[in-house]
Design a protein around this nucleic acid. Structure first.
Lengths: 95, 95
DNA sequence: AAAGTATTAAATGGAAAAATTAAATACTTA
DNA sequence: TAAGTATTTAATTTTTCCATTTAATACTTT
């Protein structure tokens, strides 16, 4: 791995490494969710969810779609999905 | 993923998400290295390398072996190796 | 034992990240 | 247009992280 790539990957891991953000990524697997939807699953405020979403957006991991006064968030980066699959396999499998 | 697992994985990602620590993990793939060895590859001080190594050790990612006044560090957690392989495939492949 | 090398530990200061609160924007509906 | 809902922005405070410096420990060699 080149140094530049190490920096980029480290930044991406840092973005994923907050419990709330990682949980958001888990929740967004397979579906779109609004701030309000997410807020019901994660014990915090709307503003806090919104802040975490914007960090994920700035990293390019998630995207969104606007409809009325809702914003539907979705995972944008397929690689993150594959990475999470690997993590689930390694850290959540019984064996 | 359960909440508890999310917390644990987030902690592990956080440990890996510092450029120096991620570089150390790259360097340790396949070989043992001392603080001095690592310090030659990473532009920082011995004390700083030592601190990062202790963070990696506390997370259980690396282990060590003592010989004379050298400490040889090695990767302890096979899962981290597989995770890094996946990251290399996803983020460092030309295609 | 003294001097030298490798590493760690402890303390400091500064920078970055996080949660909280309050105010602003955007859209909808009554 | 006024009131209501969803989300974001901005400001503030608290917390956590990181690099640096200095001192301590452990071991070797002379």
């Amino acid at each position: 791995m080149e140094n530049e790539q190490i920096e980029a990957i480290a930044a991406m891991l840092k973005t994923m490494s907050h419990p709330i953000r990682l949980k958001i990524l888990c929740l967004l697997q397979g579906k779109e969710m609004t701030v309000g939807d997410i807020r019901e699953e994660v014990k915090t405020t709307n503003a806090n969810v919104s802040q975490h979403l914007s960090i994920l957006r700035n990293q390019g991991i998630i995207g969104y779609r606007k409809d009325a006064n809702f914003i539907f968030n979705r995972i944008n980066d397929e690689r993150v999905l594959e990475l999470m699959q690997t993590m689930r396999k390694l850290y959540c499998q019984p064996e």
